[in-house]
Design a protein around this nucleic acid. Sequence first.
DNA 1: TCTGGGGTCCTAGGACCC
DNA 2: TCTGGGGTCCTAGGACCC
Length: 440
Amino acid sequence: MYGLVDCNNFYVSCERVFNPLLRNKPVVVLSNNDGCIIARSNEAKSLGIPMGAPLHLYKTLIEKNKIFIYSSNYTLYGDMSSRVMSSLNYFVPDMEIYSIDEAFLDLRKFNEKTISDKMFEIRQFVYQWTGIPVSIGVGPTKTLAKLANKMAKKHSPKGVYVLTMSEHLRNILSEIKLEDIWGISKGWANRLKSIGINNPFELQQSDPRQIRKLVSVVGERMVYELRGNSCLSLENIVDKKSITVSRSFGHMIDDKYNLKQALANHVARAAEKLRSQDSLCGEICVFINTNRFRKKDLQYNNSGILPFDDLTDNTNIIMKKAFKVLDRLYRPNYNYKKIGVILLDLKQRKKDVTNNDYIIQDNLFTYNKNHKNIANTSDIHMKILDDINTKMGKMTLFYGSQGVVKHSERKQIEKDKWRMRSFYRSPFYTTNWADILRVS
DNA sequence: TCTGGGGTCCTAGGACCC
DNA sequence: TCTGGGGTCCTAGGACCC
């Protein structure tokens, strides 16, 4: 089983820890420049304030109901987040920090019968140690755990909900919307509806290959996940693959000097982030935007990328390059609203990637050194995988593609082969293709 | 007047190699 | 008039997430 822990109204809860007077009162937290409402207490939610609402549209409602307003304090939230995460880690060693306020737990070593009690206990301790209330959803896959968490927030006053494969789950899936499933948003929901799939239950019952054609392997995985077949394992991604720092301006800016000033701040911050994760970057991207909400203004949105001669984490070097890009991008006579920098092509300074750790991308299942799951592949390789399966005692599902005529199909085969090769690079099997073919 | 910021993954298809 | 077969690497753009 997997668990998903989600902090309730996280930013608001953080503010409440340090100001208990805010308890049971309506509270909202604002974005940069106090522009949007990005967190709401339950009380504020029930007053009808939507997520991401522009503050100016709700001024009267806020004043009328005496809603408390806070500018965001990310340093505080970051600190509170790590306290919550280390509390969880105390109980569950295998976990994945998914976002600032969410973590997946690997509960497979826990006794299923007592899992619910255990979750209550964890929840209680986290609150005691950090002051942050959390909800915990438990399910056979990450996708179902995510759903269980939603159920916990909605229907369970004690904040814990355990979902198992049952008639009950079937009923739930029939009653909720496609968009309630993690990974499905409006665009995909519409596509699914266009082929007659109207709710998650129908998605669960559908032909995975058909879904793959419609919404890629990501959608195909969802089908299996909804059936209780785990396709997504816990990931311990500590290092970011790209680092962005950007801000909107409080006022419009049209001169290069001020843009440069802002860019300099962002670059310094980005370089700090880069060094704090011990990475080097190979490329820099700078982007500038005018105010997209002012339809009458002339619009100009552009970005530029430049490589570094050598990988670097040096602020000065990055800064010079950033200015160079800005020189190319800048056009006079526009009112600029936003500028940002993205560090790309990040590499680890310390190479601690072991040869045993093979992650296969672009497939249904991921396989790694923990053998949590196994990769899928084409029919051509079915027997080989079957053999591996027998030896490893794991379940495999297959996605087939045969015939090499069209370009796209060739690509498919190519990918399958690539997967297989990665597979055989694992410590358990030969890298010799002759051997592989003999097995099949 | 005022409208956030920071990420990841997947796919098709082009460039290029033997 | 015909125009192989197999393979790697890269990128833009489009999804999705919190």
